[in-house]
Amino acid sequence: MTSYQSLPLPLRRVVRVIDTISVWSGKLFCWLIIPMVLCLVYEVFARYLFDAPTVWAYDATYMIYGSHFMLGAAFTSVRQAHVRTDFLYQNWPPRWQGIVDATLYACLYFPAIGLFTWAGYDFASVSWEQREVGITGPWAPPLYPFKTVIPVTGAMLIMQGVSEFIKSLYAAIKGEWPS
């Protein structure tokens, strides 16, 4: 990971702490792929060898999948892997890249993800209040932890956005990306 020595001290701390959290979240949640594989493998064996499909594999699969990609979103951001079209972007000087990024983070990213987080918080808290259970399978598992993934993802994305915003602001002012 970049050390961002060029950033002034308080900002450097903020960026480092945020990036570290995002990286660790990715390193933690990426392992959800293992239970995802195992659930389905067990289901296939149970269905074809023991002739006794599970009641939980269907719900478990989408719950793990949904949590996996959502909770990985901040990690994907810190690794700069949310797909962009860079045929113009990459040819611009860092100052322009920074200006464009900083403006779009401020005017587009924070409002959008902020509203997403707020609505997601409401969505999940209603589910907690109702102790909502899933009805798409006979298992009827609690849905509220799964729905909580939405505001958590939103909060992580906002946090990572702060770090990206600082980096792009630096590039906009200094004409080079922080290193």
């Binding site: 006794a52 499909p53 009641v55 269907y58 009805i135 798409t136 399978g137 006979p138 009827a140």
Partner: peptide, 25 residues
């Protein structure tokens, strides 16, 4: 048999009858 039933309490009724109920869209 493995039987596609509607989800929720309807599925629960089949399960209680001893039927392997699967909910599918």
């Amino acid at each position: 048999l493995k039987y596609r039933s509607p989800p929720g309490i309807t599925g629960e009724l089949f399960t209680t009858m001893g039927i392997t109920a699967v909910a599918l869209p």
